[in-house]
Design a protein around this nucleic acid. Sequence first.
DNA 1: ATGAAAGCGCTAACAT
DNA 2: ATGTTAGCGCTTTCAT
Lengths: 355, 355
Amino acid sequence: MKRAASQNRVLKAPTGSDVARVAGVSKSAVSRAFNGGLVSEDARARILEAARLLKYRPSLTARSLTTNKSGLIGVAITRLDNHFYPEVVEHISERLREEKYRLVLFITRGETDLEPVLDELLGYRLDGIVLASSSLAGQLAAECAQSNVPVIMFNNIDFENRAPGVTTDNAAGGSQIARFLLAGDHRRCAVITGVAESSTSTERSKAFNETIMAAGFPPPLVLSGDYSFEGATQATRQLLASATPPDAIFCVNDHMALAAVQAAAAAGKTPGRDVSIVGFDNVNIASWPTFSLTTYAQPTRQMTDDVINRLLKAIDGHPLANETIRIPGRLIVRDSARKPAGVKSDAHGTEYWDG
Amino acid sequence: MKRAASQNRVLKAPTGSDVARVAGVSKSAVSRAFNGGLVSEDARARILEAARLLKYRPSLTARSLTTNKSGLIGVAITRLDNHFYPEVVEHISERLREEKYRLVLFITRGETDLEPVLDELLGYRLDGIVLASSSLAGQLAAECAQSNVPVIMFNNIDFENRAPGVTTDNAAGGSQIARFLLAGDHRRCAVITGVAESSTSTERSKAFNETIMAAGFPPPLVLSGDYSFEGATQATRQLLASATPPDAIFCVNDHMALAAVQAAAAAGKTPGRDVSIVGFDNVNIASWPTFSLTTYAQPTRQMTDDVINRLLKAIDGHPLANETIRIPGRLIVRDSARKPAGVKSDAHGTEYWDG
DNA sequence: ATGAAAGCGCTAACAT
DNA sequence: ATGTTAGCGCTTTCAT
């Protein structure tokens, strides 16, 4: 009975005023103590002690109302099943945590309805947004930018260049893979693409095709794998069952390349010997001995660094240039494709090709 | 020049008062219009129109200050490289989105310092927290619960039962795997464990060992794989190189089992024929043809459903019982382990064993 | 049905 | 160095 009142207090988190009262100061003093403002050593000590006692932590919600910054960065992603994305999320999360920002994750799935997503994205007054290949990316980016919240597209970029972005130099990658395959004496190349709306898929496959044709070879056979494991499995099966099967298959991402490797094996073909398979991303699994996938490594670290750096600069008031940064990656050579001459080895023993 | 003023306005998001002014009503009316309160059809129409015009969206930050609910659920995870976790995050995200909550992701890595994490977790007045095998779980859970924010531990649970949790019935799983292996005529079992502090690892391996011994066989050889790919690779290599190698290896999660399968192959042993390997989790990759891993499937969907349901109930005012729910999974039979009699097939053609 | 006013927990001038 | 005051954008009595 006697404790009823104090028990109820537990239900509400202590406020700055509570601390102020206990410490015998004003709430501004408390605020200052927690924000590196001017407070006497004596007062600061009493405040900190009171805070400890009450288990007080400033409400970041209330703070963001006055400071007009939420400390929240939104990251929108379509799905997490392509292993490239969890890796990206981990990198971003790490940088964000160093910079004292929190990560609000939006997995948009096939969502086509913009409004609800916008309400959330914009409603929380996020300080910035990373659109990592969200299905709604282009549209979303435009809307957010209009509402004055910094947005950068990650990996997939906007065809119409309505928003800033960062991506691997996909054209360079696609082209280099083509040269790699040509140098390895492959003469009948095929490519398995993702979805048509995806800039990464089109940029990679286009450069690949052009390079092949520029070298005087017939245009590669192009099949869609729809970015899915099943799609790529299907496409590979079909390719290998043809009368004149390709001697090399370029999959525009590792997720599909990994499926292709297995589909090839199922068809009795050994990747790297009977048919060469090359991916794009260099996800962790690509290096697993079973797959040993030759693939163009995206410079994930540099990409996430760039996206965060620019976002922070924008938050800092320097308006975001509507620019797409394209960072070159590196062709990692493993065993899923026949090797040409000129394969080099770096300090870690990783083999790569830069022809 | 003439537009300077209006341009500046763009920098700040429109507020409810702005809408009120344009619509010719009070800001309470605006609030009501956006919260299903009582407003005349006429007023509502004008308000909505004004809001559309100004691109107004209620500030969820400000709202949460008054309502004392943030609409934010925190999810803390150690890492994302064990593919089980991205799958979990996706499920949770999906449920949360249906329930109109946003997901704040904390990847804690090896973090040992509690305070900064707590400041964030508690500072944002998250409505609830899911501790999915965060390294700091036990401690964190206790502190949060003390601060009156609902916390549930996911997958790994607290040894000392200081916090509610949900997990697979790990003991049932470990035990069933043992019986499965015994039924398949395996006589020299080994187990590769995770880290010692992990409840999942200890529960699974303990039940496994006890079942083996209860059947009158010598205790399995136990090696730590440290939950890492490399650790499991090492352990498998060591196991298979011994004078009397085991005929079956139980890895306490798929992440390590996948490593074991490859290490076995590298050692010239075919999994399922020369040595049986069984995992735990049933991550997506486990079903890939190359691995075709026999594994105990965690009831991920049911687990995430339970965690969200209980969290929502707690947010709704019904205090969280300090209870750990253990949901049984199912032993999925594939090719990485020799099959005993009694394997059944479900409606989807998935093979399982329930002996 | 609608508006006025108070207040959520904080920060930021402005005094002193 | 410290307290007072006035908001931040919203919801929520309480009148009317």
